[in-house]
Design a protein around this nucleic acid. Structure first.
Lengths: 309, 309
DNA sequence: AACTTTTTTTGAATTCTATTCATGTCGCAA
DNA sequence: TTGCGACATGAATAGAATTCAAAAAAAGTT
């Protein structure tokens, strides 16, 4: 089946460089007898001789030269591939295809990616838009490599690295009655219109961590795609919303809306990077998580709580 | 030492094309178990996994894709090389580096080479100018592949194929006394100046086949490089020369000189193509000799005698 | 030309490793 | 759960590459 093997190419190159079987054999760490057998057998299979041994240095036939040409094409590529694979094996490079559960995470993720790319330029980076609905199976089977999530479910084969904690706050219009309260109780929202991203309730801190435990259902739930749009609706008094404090920060500074904590302590979700266990300790992956934390800590200084890993 | 082998690349390609170990194993004519072991072992040595088996079709990791990239670079080149080597082995192609002992053979050799090149375009062809002095050792050790010679010495490992026979004739000036004779005897040249190519006497038919056997030495021997120059010297009465009849043909037609046979029968050397025994029956080599004979027969029609092989 | 040294070839023994065989495990669908 | 298909695994086997030992062939040397 396979006539020519890598070892044959190596042998021929060594032979070209040394000019004799004896020296070539040292070069490839075999006995000279082994080389003699090896080449004789190859010549037998190919049906033609590869070099003339009666000269010093040996002289290659056309067939031999053709094989050397092949070796010159193949061996460098092989070595490069082996080198690249070493880097994969050592975790010096890899692929990070990400998905975000948290809708507004682009805000800090994009800068994090930019910062990371400076240092780890050959890591394949991408944000996948395709797996919003079911990121974890995709992560497990290798379509994704990293998922930003606030719910570290105990899935087998997945590890979670905390990035930072933030407060999920209720935003209301400046003239909204709730502005009078220092913090909000669940029942305060029973008659409110709640504006959210168009995602499942269990992925919304307001419901999963506040209203549902208290058995409170708002008057109505309305959806909007973009953070800006949600905030605008809230500012104009069409409803209330719950967003991460860092996503609301710029609107607060512009005095568009007012925010209040959910409950006396506030709700403080933590964002995690979920990765497959086998990639969790790869340097390129650890570095990404470290960079993400650092970027968040720097950019969102005083707004979020760094989780020191 | 050598991590990756051709078989690994073949396996991975089969795996990519079929999507499962079971089918891939059929493709490469091994059991599924063999592939499982093979890949497991490779992954072990590389230190990273190459694909995730829990999906259908299997999904390659970055490392796996890198290896597939290598396979796509290497395997086609390998197949091409194997194909080329098959042609070498079958004698469908090869190399013919020639040397000529006979100084004026260019005249018919160049057209022969041109004719041959039409049919056998990928045979490497060259006329070597470097081995005029000792062509046979060079032929034996592979510097040359074909030598045109008039002396088929019985060297081991060399075979001779006759190309054609010609008459070696004496050319004299039109007013030379020897014009009166129908043929020349050795002693007729005892007082003559003989003009020859600057080569050893034993390679000159006039000496080795005519004068020396008769023990006759001419008055003087003078050298000239080019056929034209020799003929001019002869035409102007500065001496006589011995050349192949086909080399003299055009000068005869122009009435420059007169030719006479050496002895009653004339001297009829035969030109041979000397090649290494192992190449003697290769189609590309046989074809060259056949083309050479044909070209000579056509171009020198009526002047030389074809040797029918 | 005889002798020594070096290099390659060769056949048999050995060691290694790829492959197979026979199970075992895992995930998935009915 | 059972049954099915796909992959994994351990032990046995078969096959090849390599080594060893010795011989043959070249190449230098005297």
């Amino acid at each position: 089946m396979s006539q020519i093997e890598i070892r044959h190419l190596r042998t021929l190159v060594a032979l070209r460089e040394t000019g004799s079987l004896v020296e070539a054999s040292e070069r490839v760490f075999l006995t000279q007898s082994a080389l003699s057998h090896q080449i004789k057998e190859l010549e037998g299979r190919l049906g033609c001789s590869l070099f003339l041994r009666k000269t010093r240095p040996v002289r290659f036939t056309s067939a031999g030269n053709r094989l050397l040409e092949l070796a010159d094409e193949v061996l460098p590529r092989l070595h490069k591939a082996e080198h690249d694979l070493d880097r994969f094996a050592g975790g010096q490079t890899g692929r990070i295809i990400m998905a975000i559960e948290c809708h507004s995470c682009f805000e800090w993720l994009l800068p994090a990616i930019d910062a990371y790319r400076n240092e780890w330029s050959d890591v394949e980076l991408d944000i996948s838009s395709g797996f919003h609905f079911a990121p974890f199976p995709a992560l497990a089977r290798g379509d994704l490599d990293l998922v930003i999530t606030a719910d570290p479910l105990d899935e087998p084969g997945i590890t979670y690295f905390p990035i930072f904690s933030y407060e999920a706050q209720l935003a209301v219009a400046k003239n909204h009655p709730l502005v009078e309260k220092t913090w909000v109780e669940p029942k305060d929202l029973a008659d409110e219109i709640v504006i959210t991203y168009p995602v499942d309730r269990e992925r919304l801190d307001l419901f999963s961590g506040f209203l549902e435990p208290a058995g409170v259902e708002p008057a109505r739930v309305r959806h909007a795609e973009l953070t800006t749009m949600i905030v605008q609706l809230v500012a104009s008094g069409r409803g209330v919303t719950c967003l991460p404090n860092w996503a609301l920060h710029e609107y607060l500074q512009n005095d568009y809306v007012v925010v209040r904590s959910l409950g006396e302590e506030g709700i403080w979700p933590t964002l995690y990077a979920a990765v497959r266990k086998d990639q969790g300790d790869a340097p390129f992956m650890e570095a990404f998580i470290e960079v993400a934390k650092q970027v968040c800590f720097d950019n969102l200084r005083g707004i979020v709580t760094a989780e020191l890993g």
